[in-house]
Amino acid sequence: MSSLRGPTTYDLEPPRHPSLKINSKEPFNAEPPLSALVASYITPEEFFYKRNHGPIPVLENPDTFLLEIGGLVPHSQYLSLEFIRKLHKHSVTATLQCAGNRRTAMSEKRAVKGVGWGAAAIGNAIWSGARLSDVLELVGIPQNTAATLNGGKHVEFVSVDVCKEEKGGPYKASIPLMQATNREADVLLAYEMNGKELNRDHGFPLRVVVPGVIGARSVKWLRAIYVLAEECQGFFMQRDYKMFPPSVDWDNVDWPTRRPLMDFPVQCTICSPEEGTSLKPRSKVTVRGYAVSGGGRGIERVDVSIDGGHTWLEANRSQLQQRPYISDDDGKRDKWAWVLWDLSVELSPPMDIIVKAIDSSANVQPENVETIWNLRGVLNNSWHRIHIEASHRKEIQSNL
């Protein structure tokens, strides 16, 4: 029996950075200041958003940890942490984003249900561990398999945490078997984050990382992996993290009519200056932010407007290379990671700054949040706008 367990109380929570904005204490959900996101291409663990559905699990003895691999597989196995660490180590630079990122802006238009995230429920890290496709080969499932002989088509990940949504049961989610067995999809059983052992907030001792997909599928505190004929039937796959049109509310929602969310859409946010900043006329400012798209799609362009969207200026884009990374054909892009962007402009407030991004598949962010409003407040990727105030501070005149 594994010594990884999910507590039922919040008495054993790990320490957190004091600058985090806490959106809920129990369970603990928090995001960093926006400015922290553009301070570094790789997000430090302490500034990586914390998303939880229950108390943080505890591993009492790493030597007794066992990961179950079962379901519709030729050979079920239990793998120790030591064994997993001896498999070929693979590293991926990938951005994880909560599906509720920027939910607060959506709720300002019309009430939604969910944690009140700002625009910092996102982070970019170097994840290291064993490829899921390599682990599945150990139980008899070859690479690039869409279905097993006995009908397995999905891979379910089961945690040990205690979730009220699952009536005290564990968090679980699934992805298609073809994605799980595709080496190019870079799905990991990660035990390191940014070159260090995972900490408890981020899934110690083992978590799944599914690049390019909403964070809800990258299950933390992993206990078991099952190959199933159908996708996971848990709460977070069947009654949450689905996107409905604005006409659907809690009185007429029909959960089975929509598929679970997977890839996240193109997204772009201003991180500096922040909303409500006061500036003098003709201030020279460097506007900074992040842009990302799901499914391995890169960012083709970031456009910034300082005149209400009448005209647009193209921002500079960069990925500050840090090994190891995955390159696309031109060798200049981390496939699953965000880009940081900046643009130096002269501002004369009061005024708004607007930003939007276009990805490599020509997907464009929608202009208005009203067109994508949904009852759970997920996937708000409308144009990001911030207001800059005019500074009324009088200049002190010297009499000397």
Rank of each mutant, 00 (worst) to 15 (best):
V135S: 03
F244Y: 14
P62R: 10
L189I: 05
S247L: 07
R288A: 07
P324K: 03
I326K: 07
V369S: 07
G331Y: 08
F47E: 10
N61Q: 04
K50Q: 09
V355L: 01
E300Q: 14
H384N: 10
L222C: 09
L228V: 00
N252A: 06
Y49H: 14
P170S: 12
E165Y: 11
F157R: 02
I396R: 14
P211I: 04
P176F: 00
M193G: 07
D359C: 03
T8N: 13
G140D: 07
D334C: 10
V248Q: 04
S2M: 06
D186K: 02
W127T: 01
Q179F: 09
F236C: 02
P211L: 04
V73F: 13
N381M: 02
R16G: 02
S2G: 00
I42E: 11
N150Q: 15
R103K: 09
E192I: 06
R297D: 06
S348M: 08
D186P: 01
P14Y: 08
K113L: 12
D352P: 03
A36H: 10
G71K: 08
F244S: 01
R110A: 03
N124R: 04
V364I: 14
V139N: 00
A99F: 02
W255P: 04
L66R: 15
D161H: 11
G308C: 01
G54Y: 09
P33F: 11
N374Q: 06
K153C: 09
A99Q: 07
L400N: 12
L59Y: 10
T64H: 03
Y171Q: 04
F236H: 13
A229P: 06
T104D: 13
T277E: 12
